[in-house]
Simulated scan of single mutants.
Amino acid sequence: MDFLSPLLTADTLKISVILLTLKVAGIATVVSSVLGILTAWCIARRPFPGRTWVDALCALPLVLPPTVIGYYLILLVGRRGLLGPWLAEFGINLMFSWEGAVVAATVVVFPLIYKSARAALEAVDHNLENAARTLGASEWKVFLRVSLPLAWRGILAGVMLAFARGMGEFGATLMIAGNLPGRTQTLSLAIYSAFQAGDDAQALALVIATSLLCMGVLILADKLATGGLSFGRGA
Rank of each mutant, 00 (worst) to 15 (best):
P49D: 09
G50S: 13
G50V: 13
R51D: 12
A56Q: 04
A56G: 03
A56V: 08
A59Y: 03
L60A: 11
P61V: 09
L64S: 03
P65H: 08
P65N: 04
P65S: 04
P66G: 12
P66M: 01
V68K: 02
V68R: 02
I69N: 03
G70Y: 03
Y71N: 01
Y71S: 02
Y71G: 01
Y72A: 05
I74W: 09
I74Q: 10
L76R: 11
L76Y: 05
V77A: 14
G78W: 06
G78D: 04
G78K: 10
R79P: 01
R79H: 07
R79L: 01
R80N: 14
G81W: 09
G81R: 11
L82V: 15
G84P: 04
G84S: 12
G84T: 10
P85H: 12
P85D: 02
W86Q: 11
W86V: 14
L87P: 01
E89I: 03
I92Q: 07
I92H: 05
M95W: 02
W98E: 07
W98M: 05
W98K: 09
W98R: 11
A101W: 09
V102H: 07
A104N: 11
T106H: 13
V107S: 10
V107Y: 06
V108C: 02
V109T: 15
P111A: 11
P111N: 09
I113H: 13
I113D: 03
K115D: 10
S116E: 07
A119L: 12
A119N: 14
L121Y: 14
E122F: 09
D125K: 11
H126Y: 04
H126W: 05
L128M: 11
L128R: 11
A132L: 00
A132N: 01
